[in-house]
C-alpha cells in the first residue's frame, strides 16, 4: 500500500524534513544533512553537516560562503539517483538559476516533487524546468496572483536599448539580483545583439565570473570602478537594486535607473524601487505558468509554500485537485 507523503515529508521549524531519509530540504538553520535546491541565500545557508546539491550550486555556495561552508558535500548530476535512508532522491532542472534543481523524492511507492524556486521561461544561463509526474507537487507562490503576467523578455530588454537611444547622454543603471538575474540579463542583452562591454558593480563580479567558469558565455564585461560619468554615457551598468539611489550611484552622473524584477509589474513597487525603467524580468513563474506547471506534473495534490498561497490554492482547487498551504518560514520573496 502506498505511503502518502504527508506521513514522511513534514514542515518543521528548520524547514521541510524527510523523516525516513533523515534530511532537510533548504533548511533555514544548520542541520546534519541537507539537500539544497539552489544557491540563493534564503535556500542555501552555511553551516550544515552534509550537503547534497548540484555541482553548480555547491560552487555558488563556495563563492558566497567560502570553502568549508559545510562539513561534507556531495554533488549530484541532474537525473542521477541517490539512496538516502529509505528514500531515493533525484535532482531535475528547475530553470530558476544556474544549478537550480527540483528534488524528486520516492518512498513507500509514492513520489513527491519539491520544486524549490522555478520558472518556465527560456533562460540562456540554465537548462529548462523538467516536469516530473508525481503524487504530491510542492510549489512556491511568489507571484501567486492573477495580476502577475510576465511579458516576453525580449520587449523588456528592448526598453533598455530604446532608452539608450532616447537618452544618449545618460548611463543605463540596471538593478539586478547578484545571482541569476544579473547573468540572465547580460545573456538576454547579448541575444538582443548588444555586444558592447557591460559594466558591473563590485558586488556582482564574483558570481558572474563563476557563471563564466561554469561555461555560460556572457561576452565582454568590465568593472565600473574608477569610471567617470563621461565614460559611461549610453553604457549599460549593472548593480544590486539597493545601490540605486544610494551614494554609490552618484558616480554614474545622471543615470537612467532601471530595475529588473517580476515585482516591477506593480506600479507602486516600481516607484518604491525608484525605477525610471521598470523591467518585468522574473526568475519565478507568473500566475499562468504556476497553473500550467500543476497541470504538467498532473499531481492530484499540491502543497503551496512561500508567497501568496491563498489565491493559488483557491485556483488549484477549482481544477479538482487537492491543495493546501505548507507554512515554511524563512523564505523571502525578493528577486
Amino acid at each position: 500500500m502506498a505511503l502518502h507523503p504527508q506521513h514522511w515529508l513534514k514542515p518543521m521549524p528548520g524547514g521541510l524534513y524527510c523523516e525516513p531519509g533523515g534530511f532537510f530540504i533548504d533548511p533555514s538553520r544548520p542541520v546534519d544533512r541537507a539537500i539544497v535546491t539552489h544557491g540563493h541565500g534564503d535556500h542555501a545557508r552555511a553551516g550544515h553537516g552534509k550537503v547534497a546539491a548540484t555541482a553548480e550550486t555547491l560552487a555558488i555556495m563556495g563563492v558566497r560562503y567560502g570553502e568549508g561552508f559545510a562539513r561534507e558535500t556531495q554533488s549530484l548530476s541532474y537525473g542521477e539517483r541517490l539512496g538516502m535512508g529509505d528514500v531515493t532522491i533525484m535532482l531535475e532542472p528547475a530553470g530558476h538559476i544556474l544549478g537550480s534543481a527540483q528534488v524528486v523524492l520516492e518512498h513507500g511507492g509514492c513520489r513527491a516533487v519539491v520544486s524549490g524556486d522555478y520558472k518556465r521561461r527560456f533562460d540562456p544561463t540554465c537548462p529548462p524546468f523538467t516536469p516530473v509526474k508525481c503524487d504530491v507537487f510542492i510549489t512556491e507562490a511568489t507571484f501567486g496572483l492573477p495580476v502577475f503576467h510576465h511579458p516576453p523578455d525580449k520587449g523588456e530588454i528592448g526598453k533598455v536599448l530604446h532608452a539608450r537611444e532616447l537618452f544618449p547622454d545618460r548611463s543605463m543603471l540596471v538593478g539586478v539580483y547578484a545571482l541569476g538575474k544579473c547573468q540572465r540579463v547580460i545573456a538576454l542583452l547579448r541575444r538582443a545583439g548588444y555586444d558592447k562591454p557591460i559594466y558591473l558593480h563590485g558586488a556582482l563580479q564574483a558570481l558572474t565570473q563563476l557563471y563564466e567558469t561554469q561555461g555560460v558565455r556572457l561576452g565582454p564585461l568590465a568593472s565600473v570602478a574608477g569610471m567617470v560619468p563621461a565614460q559611461l554615457k549610453s553604457e549599460i551598468v549593472l548593480c544590486p537594486p539597493s545601490a540605486i539611489g544610494e551614494v554609490w550611484s552618484r558616480r554614474m552622473g545622471d543615470p537612467v535607473p532601471a530595475v529588473a524584477s517580476g515585482w516591477m509589474r506593480i506600479r507602486a513597487r516600481a516607484r518604491q524601487a525608484r525605477a525610471e525603467l521598470p523591467l518585468i524580468i522574473s526568475d519565478h513563474c507568473d500566475w499562468d505558468e504556476l497553473l500550467q506547471t500543476v497541470r504538467d506534473v498532473d499531481a492530484p495534490e499540491v502543497w503551496v509554500t512561500h508567497g501568496r498561497e491563498e489565491a493559488l490554492i483557491h485556483a488549484i482547487q477549482q481544477t479538482g485537485r487537492r491543495a493546501r498551504a505548507l507554512s515554511l518560514v524563512g523564505y523571502e520573496d525578493e528577486e
Partner: peptide
Amino acid sequence: RVDPELFGWSYDYVGDLAETIALIWPV
C-alpha cells in the same frame, strides 16, 4: 470575466482599480 474571489485578493494587493483590471483582464 474573472473569479470574483481572485479579483478581490488582487485588488487588495494592487490597491488601484484601473491597474488591477489592466493586469487581471484575461488574455
